[in-house]
């Protein structure tokens, strides 16, 4: 296996030369430095560092797997696996009209329920609003959730979803990967899916990972599982 290039906080990436500053970098006197331990992404348009570790920082538009933390009068607080809790207002969580004076909101979502939702607003001070008003968002029933390092999510999904599609196809599991590092899995052979996901998480910084996972899942299938 060949190693990828790794940078540390304070390492200089390049002169800025008018380019966009992406995630994980800062500028000082026209030079751009890494803020993080991670893998540099330097292109003609942008300088960024993909972090290798770190907790989840909510971004607007992210789709996350979340757990209902508390039921309030006008909506729900949801745990999004972050230093920040999101609020899901009734109007963003339920299609029908709800009379909040009379309704018990646990009828829709109760504490501990798992949902797939979108972060519709994230303010500068990290007040986070969640929404389920789109076709993909829904309550997730009967599965289990696992947590992975959020920075590994792109590797678990793979290029254009290739990695996760492969796992879904081989294990015949329903899998939803939240940007927040929470993954919901349902299916009889979920152990195999989890094993594959954890392997990707551990070895995400190595080359040739797709082949390795392919082989791993192939062996599973080969054993007539």
């Amino acid at each position: 296996m060949k190693a990828r290039e790794v940078v540390l906080p304070g390492d200089m990436l390049d002169e800025r030369k008018g380019r966009k500053l992406g995630n994980g970098v800062y500028e000082e006197d026209g030079k751009v430095f890494s803020k993080l331990l991670g893998i540099p992404r330097i292109s003609e348009n942008e300088l960024a560092v993909i972090p290798m570790y770190g907790t989840y920082l909510p971004k607007m538009g992210d789709r996350v797997v979340a757990v209902i933390e508390s039921v309030e009068i006008s909506g729900w607080f949801v745990d999004i696996n972050s230093a920040y809790t999101a609020f899901l207002p009734v109007s963003e969580g339920v299609e029908e009209f709800v009379d909040m004076q009379r309704s018990d909101l646990t009828r829709f979502f109760d504490v501990g329920d798992i949902i797939y939702c979108r972060l519709s607003r994230v303010t500068k001070q990290k007040t986070v609003q969640a929404s389920m008003r789109d076709f993909e968002s829904r309550k997730l029933r009967n599965g289990i959730i696992i947590k992975v390092t959020p920075t590994r999510v792109p590797r678990i999904i793979g290029k254009e979803g290739s990695m996760i599609s492969m796992i879904k196809a081989s294990t015949k599991c329903d899998i939803i990967v939240g940007q927040n590092g929470v993954i919901w899995i349902r299916g009889d052979t979920k152990d195999k899916a989890i094993e594959a996901i954890i392997t990707i998480e551990k070895e995400s910084h190595t080359m040739g990972l797709t082949e390795k996972i392919e082989k791993m899942l192939g062996e599973v299938n080969g054993q007539g599982d």
Binding site: P9, G10, K35, L36, L37, M52, T55
Partner: peptide, 11 residues
């Protein structure tokens, strides 16, 4: 701190 992914100017 670096391995926790906390953004830093330098070590």
């Amino acid at each position: 701190l670096a391995s926790a992914g906390i953004p830093m100017k330098d070590l």
